[in-house]
């Protein structure tokens, strides 16, 4: 059959109404003609201004004309040949049968993509966090510290001598670490909510609780906690955590935008677990840096873990190993990190 002359038989939908009729579409030298049956009309258009819809599985092929009329025809190999002769796009007929090499490539790329996305995500968020101007860190830190001061902290009741002792150790660590002394600020507070603890705020404020100092049995233990918190400040961990937590929500929203199941619930649980894993990653990073600072200043890095063990002495084996749901790494991993 010479499709150039006979064309293809389908249905012609008139512009501006719901009427339609059987018609024949032909294509000769860049001109498309529609001859409508039961009607002597022949309508012609330049082929280049006809909008041939991309094929969709099981649906008729559709051509729209500039006046709003349309032609529909069942999708057969002949019709396919007709439209490709017309120069219309073949559409996304990507399948293993038609393009085995391309499909294999796509599958490999699709498997690799999540890893690349992951790498790109952590790298990008870290770059953003490090590039944020200091004023942002100051502002975020001030807000967070303000909240803690209002609700959780009370002034320290430690004897002056203990504080001077800890501050001397801190100044020593700051100097060895090469951190600008004006960028960090050590504060002593007491809090019944957070117990023996140290907190590093984004603006460089480091808070040590009285309970922690009382619980320590060796000066190096306090030094280890201070070194650990100092590393958090040095590495901008709180800002990086914030940027990553924001980023992961956005990433998941973008990837799972319109899913229709409980997967979205699962994904939001997943982002929580991921945020925890970011936290553990940063804790280990801080531990490694703390171990380094401790060794350089001639102190014993493993003292950090001694103190930690004492803080959670009733924890048992649960605290030794890292788990998916813990905020901090297990002691085994942390001991490994400080000792390295």
């Amino acid at each position: 059959m010479n499709i150039g002359v006979d064309g293809i038989a389908g249905r012609y939908f008139e512009a501006g109404s719901s009427r339609y009729g059987d018609a024949r579409l032909t294509h000769i030298d860049g001109v498309v003609s529609i001859s409508v049956e039961n009607d002597s009309r022949v309508i012609t258009w330049g082929a280049s201004i006809c909008d041939v819809f991309i094929p969709v599985a099981g649906l008729p092929r559709r051509v729209e004309f500039p006046d709003g009329a349309a032609f529909e025809v069942g999708d057969t190999p002949e019709v396919e040949a007709f439209f490709s002769a017309m120069g219309a796009s073949k559409g996304p007929r990507v399948g293993f049968r038609s393009h085995p090499k391309l499909m294999t490539l796509i599958v490999i790329a699709a498997i690799a993509a999540p890893f690349l996305v992951w790498f790109g995500f952590t790298a990008t968020t870290d770059i953003i966090a490090r590039a944020l101007p200091d004023s942002v860190a100051q502002q975020v830190g001030a807000v967070a510290l303000g909240t803690f001061e209002d609700r959780l902290f009370k002034p320290s009741t430690l004897p002056e001598s203990k504080r001077i002792e800890a501050r001397a150790v801190f100044d020593d660590l700051v100097q060895v670490a090469g951190v600008d002394p004006n960028a960090v600020n050590l504060k002593f507070r007491t809090s019944k909510f957070i117990g023996p603890n140290g907190i590093a705020f984004p603006d460089g404020t480091i808070v040590i609780t009285d309970a922690l100092i009382k619980l320590s049995k060796h000066p190096d233990e306090i030094a280890a906690v201070l070194a650990h918190e100092l590393a958090h400040v040095e590495e901008r961990h709180s800002l990086r955590l914030l940027v990553r937590s924001v980023g992961i929500v956005f990433l998941v929203e973008f990837l799972l935008g319109d899913s229709i199941s409980l997967l979205e619930e699962a994904a939001s649980l997943g982002t929580g677990i991921l945020s925890l894993s970011f936290n553990r990653e940063f804790e280990l990073e801080a531990d490694r840096r703390a171990g380094e600072l401790m060794r350089v200043t001639g102190r014993d890095p493993s003292k950090l873990i001694d103190l930690l063990r004492r803080i959670v002495k009733d924890c048992g084996s649960g605290c030794e190993k890292s788990s998916l749901f813990s905020t901090h790494p297990g002691f085994e991993d942390r001991l490994d990190a400080v000792a390295r």
Partner: peptide, 27 residues
């Protein structure tokens, strides 16, 4: 197919995928 292509193109292709899926469902 549209999902794999969307993954490979970091989500950009999903606009095309969305159109194809809606055309399929509505058609």
């Amino acid at each position: 197919r549209t999902f794999l292509l969307a993954v490979v193109t970091l989500g950009i292709y999903d606009a095309w995928g969305t159109v194809e899926r809606r055309r399929y469902l509505l058609g």
